[in-house]
Simulated scan of single mutants.
Amino acid sequence: MQNVDSLSENRTAPEPVGRIDVFRLDGVARTFGGQPVLADIDLRIAQGERVAIIGPSGAGKTTLFRLLSAVLKPSTGRVLALGHDTRRLRGRALRRLRRDIGVLYQNDNLIPHLRVVHNVLMGRIGHWGLARTLLSLFWPQQLPAARAALQAVELPGKLWSMPGELSGGQQQRVAIARLIVQRPRVMLADEPVSQLDIRLGREIIGLLAGVASELGATLLVNLHTLELLHEHFDRVIALRDGRLFWQGTPDAISRDLLRELYGAEYRALSLDQVVHDRPVPVQSGEPPG
């Protein structure tokens, strides 16, 4: 078994080449109230990638997603999202970027007092003007698109249901249907299965990956359930204490790496069940020598 010092040397893996970057982060840091949340992040995400982001609580995963979606701007450094420097975007240009980046949150995905059809069609707001958006609240616009999206997530009979009538897994499916009608170029899912059991979580991750493939979209998922890493992701990026800790393929993850990454959380998360005990590659992303 390798010791912690040897693991510390194996933080990075070669990033994809030959594809257009949908995100590029150069020396990015973000502080709140003078306290650093992210620091020295250099990262590229290529078009069409399937990337899982992991790390312990407070590692900065959600803050990273907010930077990528231009909800937050970096305190220092530069975030390029779909070729645009997010620090310089205002007004219509910022709305266009957010239209092209679909976000699925852990909680509060749906507006509880609106029917499923209206929640699904919220994905079109970035494409409609104000008048059509308001009209759709009374007379749903593009109803065939909403029906087709619900059919795609296996909820064809829930068009006129209220969110409170649905299970947690069904609500996440409605939120994915909203992404389908939005048709974003990038999908960001922030802990989308943290409140679901493993079986439902696997279904939701598989559905997200399938939708991303159908749309030709890049997919990034903040994932706390590490059992779901190995089926749908090309690359795993690990954050710890606001810094890029490690990146590589799911198969390169070992118990030693997870112990160092999660520290005291390791035992509570039962991570011994996630991977077999094998050494970390000498350089992450390359086979052990």
Rank of each mutant, 00 (worst) to 15 (best):
S6Q: 14
S8I: 07
E9V: 06
N10P: 00
R11F: 04
T12K: 01
P14A: 13
E15T: 03
V17E: 13
V22F: 04
V22Q: 00
F23I: 07
R24V: 10
R24L: 09
R24G: 07
L25H: 07
L25C: 08
A29Y: 01
A29S: 15
R30C: 08
G34V: 07
D42Y: 03
G48L: 07
V51F: 00
V51N: 00
V51T: 04
A52P: 02
G60D: 06
R66F: 14
L72Y: 12
K73A: 11
T76P: 00
D85I: 12
R88Q: 15
L89E: 10
G91A: 11
A93E: 15
R96C: 09
L97H: 07
L97E: 02
I101L: 06
G102M: 06
L110P: 08
R115I: 05
V116A: 05
V120S: 04
M122A: 11
R124G: 08
H127S: 08
W128S: 04
L130Y: 07
L130R: 10
T133S: 13
L135E: 14
L137E: 13
F138C: 13
W139R: 15
L143S: 09
L143Q: 13
A152R: 15
V153N: 04
L155T: 08
P156T: 12
L159K: 10
R173I: 06
V174W: 00
V174E: 00
V186K: 02
L188Y: 03
L188P: 01
D190W: 05
Q195K: 06
Q195V: 06
G201W: 03
L207W: 05
L208Q: 03
E214R: 15
T218K: 03
H224S: 12
E227M: 08
L228C: 05
D234Q: 05
V236T: 03
A238T: 07
A238C: 11
R243T: 11
L244G: 03
L244R: 04
L244Q: 04
A252G: 11
I253T: 02
R259H: 12
Y262T: 07
G263Y: 05
A264H: 11
A264Y: 08
E265L: 04
E265Y: 02
E265F: 03
Y266V: 08
R267C: 02
L269I: 04
L271I: 11
L271V: 09
D277M: 02
R278F: 01
R278P: 01
V280L: 13
V280A: 06
V280W: 04
G289Q: 11
